[in-house]
Write a protein that binds this DNA or RNA. Structure first.
Lengths: 236, 236
DNA sequence: GAGTGGTCTAGACCACTGT
DNA sequence: CAGTGGTCTAGACCACTCT
């Protein structure tokens, strides 16, 4: 683990331990430098990381302050490591409806940059959050990158398998978000009625190499899912 | 404008000018340093900024590459500067339904950290995207921070007014996202039917001082709105 | 004006990629 | 192992806030 990541973690822990509220001020740079025995730039990087994660905000000339969210029980929308990363807050399980090798539709081929006749792994799952239906998910995996997949893996976490067994580095993703009316098939699976609302998310996942390896269409249950998104200033 | 922001802008412009595709490689550090006559750290900061904005991705030991989105016509979900920031891509207009001073409901008081009897500006608007109904928005503004507001301002951009006239620095926001069924009032305003889907977003906006100054409830038209969200790796 | 965070530099050294 | 990006340092200087 890098130095600035470690410092970030330690600072985050100190916030949790001391149970600091929104607006609480952290020690100044001089103190942080002395406490952690690192240079100023390392503190700067650590704090930038915490700011990116929405844990603090910095005010030039004033100080560094704790940022707190006001509501609990929301799925973090900017995470792209799958739900399993949401350590313990939610209990996510999956039921595999289908796992096969198929020639995907055009839309998927384009997103994954595949040839006409290249087949992919197709996985259709229902995912549950604390034993309630959360979403239905259809995923297409580039077989060049994911050469093997089975039901047992898909029942647990495919992303964990990619990371640990295949040593893949999932790095960034693009989400395309729509609200839709469910058709018969979809509503049956979600235990809802035809015409009920649903949140449709098309997501394209990239490895750190920049290659797209997974395209997923997910429809969320409109009652059992709610999302949280923190924005930080990007443009001045 | 800061040096690294300027460099970021120049690099972005060079990507646009040369019409570089996804995966195209940028010049290496040495060349960038020479081209822009700055130190390595400044290049690092500029590239970090572009990565945060989803314009490039960096691979250690390999290079810096262009990141391109695959679809157009989606509203950027991680922007928190209002739509007006989406320079030209969309034409956003507003119709003011109500503008008054009220004692807000409990939920709003909590979010804005207000006293029992503190009044706020309440604004209800319909917003249009390219002349189609985009959303209905109910906003509550802390009067201590926004001491004056009128219909003319609300018809244009309240955020622009905050930034330019009041010199406020809007810095970050929290979004809480739900999918709902519309009730009669909501569907009438959105020109839809009762029971149709809607995307409800509660958003709390903060100044760079860390003070919450605006709480908004927005319901988006499920056909006329679609959103885009780029994720970047936050946790290793 | 004192104190705080933010930028920028030059350079040493580390870590990863690709051949 | 050459080449590329990433980390880390020490220190000068800048910009903002608060009182």
């Amino acid at each position: 683990m890098l130095k600035y990541e470690k410092i970030a973690l330690l600072i985050e822990e100190s916030i949790v331990e001391n149970n600091l509220n929104h607006g609480s001020r952290l020690p100044n740079f001089k103190e942080l430098i002395e406490t952690y025995h690192v240079s100023k730039s390392t503190i700067v990087k650590a704090l930038d990381l915490l700011e990116k994660r929405g844990i603090i905000y910095q005010i030039q000339g004033s100080g560094v302050f704790v940022r707190r969210k006001k509501r609990k029980g929301y799925i973090n929308f900017s995470e792209n490591q799958g739900f399993t990363a949401d350590l313990g807050e939610f209990d996510i399980t999956s039921k595999v409806l289908e796992l096969s090798e198929v020639i995907p539709p055009l839309e998927v081929r384009e997103h994954l940059s595949l040839d006409d006749k290249e087949s992919v792994y197709y996985v259709k799952r229902i995912r549950y959050i604390n034993s309630q239906v959360l979403c239905i998910e259809e995923s297409y995996y580039n077989k060049t990158i994911i050469p093997y997949l089975n039901v047992e893996i898909a029942e647990h976490s495919i992303f964990d398998y990619c990371k640990t067994a295949l040593k893949l580095n999932i790095s960034f993703s693009d989400k395309y978000i729509h609200v839709i009316k469910l058709n018969k098939d979809e509503s049956d699976l979600l235990e809802l009625k035809e015409g009920d609302p649903g949140l449709l998310i098309d997501e394209l996942f990239y490895l750190s190499s920049g290659e797209a390896f997974d395209f997923s269409k997910t429809i969320y249950h409109y009652v059992n899912s709610q999302f949280f998104l923190q924005s930080t200033k990007i443009y001045s």
